[in-house]
Design a protein around this nucleic acid. Sequence first.
DNA 1: TCAATATACTGAAACGTTACAGGTTGCCAG
DNA 2: CTGGCAACCTGTAACGTTTCAGTATATTGA
Lengths: 351, 351
Amino acid sequence: MDRQRTDKNGENSAQGRPTLKTLAFMTGLGVTTVSRALKDAPEIGAETRRRVQLVAKQIGYRPNRAGVRLRTGRTNVISLVLNTDREIMSFVSDIIYGVSEVLAETPYHLIVTPYSRSQDPMEPIRYLVETGSADGVIISRTQPNDPRARYMLEHGMPFATHGRTDMGLVHPYHDFDNHVFAMEAVRRLASMGRRKLALLSPPPGLTYYGHTLNGFADALSEVGASEIPFNTVSIDHTIEQIRTRTAQVMRRENRPDGFVSSAAAATLAIVAGIEDAGLKLGRDVDVVSKQSSDLLHLFRPELLVVNENFRLAGSDLARSVLGWIGGAAPGSLQRLVATSEVQAFSPPVSV
Amino acid sequence: MDRQRTDKNGENSAQGRPTLKTLAFMTGLGVTTVSRALKDAPEIGAETRRRVQLVAKQIGYRPNRAGVRLRTGRTNVISLVLNTDREIMSFVSDIIYGVSEVLAETPYHLIVTPYSRSQDPMEPIRYLVETGSADGVIISRTQPNDPRARYMLEHGMPFATHGRTDMGLVHPYHDFDNHVFAMEAVRRLASMGRRKLALLSPPPGLTYYGHTLNGFADALSEVGASEIPFNTVSIDHTIEQIRTRTAQVMRRENRPDGFVSSAAAATLAIVAGIEDAGLKLGRDVDVVSKQSSDLLHLFRPELLVVNENFRLAGSDLARSVLGWIGGAAPGSLQRLVATSEVQAFSPPVSV
DNA sequence: TCAATATACTGAAACGTTACAGGTTGCCAG
DNA sequence: CTGGCAACCTGTAACGTTTCAGTATATTGA
């Protein structure tokens, strides 16, 4: 009967946004009951439950995130940790789209946590864990012995990695099978008669550097081809550095007649370097490249490509983190996607 | 003297993360005093202030975002609203980097709010405003009469737009001067003797569509060149659509001898279409294109380019939103960046 | 009939912060 | 010696939510 005094939020429904108190006033129930009714708690009568949910829908009730977060510690936030100067351009947009697509169906927000050249990659991770700013984290540029993964595991922060680790610790990941990619690439080049192959590798230090190198080496010995060293550059180098280096190598006596490239932008540089040296793609040398959007064929139809789907990676990683948060076993949230076949140019249908 | 009972957070300093209560216990002050000391309130003694801040730094105190948000309504969040299927790839990564770079120095987090094909562009905006999920918003794909801008203005949500509106309403924006871009592009083509020009425009509906068209038309009449209609496609069309359409146009009797393209990926398609028709870039036709990263010259050295810096746009937009939140006049936070000159290929120094 | 029990609901407390409305103390003017 | 004031500090309440420990009522079993 002192409801009037207590529920000063009654009139609130007109001015501010509705809260549990507003709903309690409108339904004549207590806020506890309303709170439980909204989450289908069993001790609330079926009719009451329906009634509360109906009113909530009608007036467009949305739980206040700060309230929930303060009370429960749950943030409803997933953080995507990105290196702001080394990530591949298309990687960023596609992975964000993939993650967004999954989070859109949930109450989760996506926050982007950047770190740059100058910073310790651990810094954003520590920040997230210490401040509890996210319920889950997605990281890329994964290393075999990755201190970020170890730290999050130790501190009970659910996460997923783009790329695998190799520390004997189990956690969700999504990875493209770069071992298979490199093997298929070499096989394809070999099948075209190419015998002296160079690899533009991922940056040393990342896990898939090793996968790529091993696949390359394994296939070389399988097909009996040889390697022309090209390890002074990686896809983390600038376009100009790769271009210059390629031109140098191509001017040598013992030059490669085939390239395997781990990134599309780098492939542009390789081709430019080849042509700087006065040689011709498809005649003097062939190139197999990974790409994440279907543009390389426009650049040079002679290029051979393998597609890596970053958007899929994003949605997969998001689902994994949510799964872990939801209590699934981290070991069940690991996915290695097999490379599609090496593709040659197929001209557009209508011409 | 019932401090022991009251400050149950005293021992907390050992287990959880420190709060104001922890600091209050350690300094022997009240939490109110600590709170004010940390924000340099004038009614706190200078010595006390220093002492509190020292202790806070020592134990790594970080204000709890949920607490602040619940109490004050401030979220310390900026939301970047993105269309998940139409945005230009490099736009997304660069603008995120630009925004991040600015927010990194502040307590603000960046959240990415996506919307897709199927959705009303207003939906994410309404969500953000209604739930108060952000203190400021950045939007792109701005329209002359943009309901999102109008809505946010009406509801007092600070925001900045990438691109201008044209509704007589004043708000922060960052825009690339596409009028000048189109004029310079046409002038350049004219100076090379090109007289029949086609424009691959931005999607109709966006503000810079008009700017681009006007610049194109103005320069055409200035130099006395004529337009070959090419308005059945825009940069929002697929690569294949643009390519096919270009090839069609280039096979006609009265074909263009010059193109102006508003996006780099689309330019790849145009060039492919030109070559599909058996014509040669630089001989039969020239193309001026915008690009946001320096890759087009690798594609075809004959391409003429103008650079648009999306990272700059991002940092600029972030600064504008923060400025508005901080009380600056929205009218003072508008920036139109002039296009750089049209650039032809300059070969790498060392070859 | 009475006690035990299940059902449906409730108020109070707490999460960490800030705003509000004081409360002490010391000093000075009168 | 008193009243007033400035300087400095403090407790309480509130933001919206969930959890805990209930309470009231109806239902059941003996």
